[in-house]
């Protein structure tokens, strides 16, 4: 592992009356697809939101690319890191092109000119995510999978090296789940991006992610490659439930409750 992208030291997150994350130390590598998994209430989404600066942590430190995340201006941070919330809001009356163009905000700011660079970035983001054909349609008229790809295109247009996605596939059918995660994986491996993805489905995490971070009750349960995760002992430790790992014909592994 070379220089870690995120370095987390002694991180605590509190809400009134409760501690969500307990004294977490963690390093996350760059250039990979990283899955954040864990059962409900394990604070995996909380961790992601801390990384996205959506939540302010109570104590401890998080640095991104060698600098504490609190040092960045909002715009600078958005140039380095793009975030997609769990439920994407309705984009009332917005065309796909306009939504994707919003990703250029960190580059042109509130008043700057929307220049040729911006146009190029928007066009290539749309073609990378395969939404060029919808460019002038309203976002709200598209299907769930198409809409999710539009939001991914917006993150791509942001030209950030790091993508944070909060359960990007939870509302999609299985075909679209595969489609979106393949796209994320391709985006990372082809362009050298890092993606940190909160996932519910352990098999999806194992199949599409290079590195897995498992949370349990606000603490780190384990981290490692997907092979390291796909062992009955590790899975039982993470989910608190006996699990069985089956082998597929191509050598891939599938976990099912034992």
């Amino acid at each position: 592992m070379t220089d870690p992208l995120f370095t987390i030291k002694g991180l605590c997150v509190d809400v009134p009356g409760r501690r969500l994350i307990h004294d977490l130390d963690l390093e996350l590598p760059g250039g990979q697809v990283i899955a954040l998994i864990g059962h409900n209430g394990s604070s995996k989404s909380t961790l992601l939101k801390v990384l996205a600066r959506q939540i302010v942590h109570s104590s401890g430190g998080v640095s991104f690319a060698g600098r504490p995340i609190t040092d960045y201006s909002p715009q600078d941070y958005a140039r380095g890191l793009a975030f997609m919330p769990q439920t994407t809001p309705p984009a009332e009356g917005m065309t796909v092109r306009e939504l994707v163009a919003l990703g250029r905000y960190p580059w042109h700011g509130a008043l700057g000119r929307f220049g040729p660079d911006d146009h190029v970035a928007v066009d290539s983001a749309m073609s990378e995510c395969g939404v060029t054909e919808f460019a002038d349609q309203l976002v709200d008229t598209l299907s769930g999978g198409e809409r999710q790809r539009c939001w991914l295109a917006m993150m791509v247009a942001q030209q950030a090296g790091t993508l944070l996605l909060d359960e990007p596939i939870s509302a999609l059918d299985i075909a679209h789940q595969v489609e979106v995660l393949s796209l994320v994986r391709r985006m990372c491996h082809d362009q050298g991006r890092t993606a940190i993805v909160v996932l519910h489905e352990v098999n999806m995490a194992a199949r599409f992610c290079d590195h897995v971070v498992a949370m349990k009750a606000g603490r780190l349960a384990m981290q490692g490659s997907s092979d390291e995760l796909m062992r009955p002992e590790a899975l039982e430790h993470v989910y608190g439930l006996p699990m069985q790992v089956l082998r597929r014909e191509d050598g891939g592994k599938v976990a099912v409750p034992a």
Partner: peptide, 20 residues
């Protein structure tokens, strides 16, 4: 541009670097 982003909610707005 603020007005274009803000209807999408604070998460998205902060995500694209808007000083919320």
């Amino acid at each position: 541009r603020w007005l274009q982003v803000l209807p999408l909610g604070p998460e998205v707005a902060a995500g694209v670097g808007l000083p919320l």
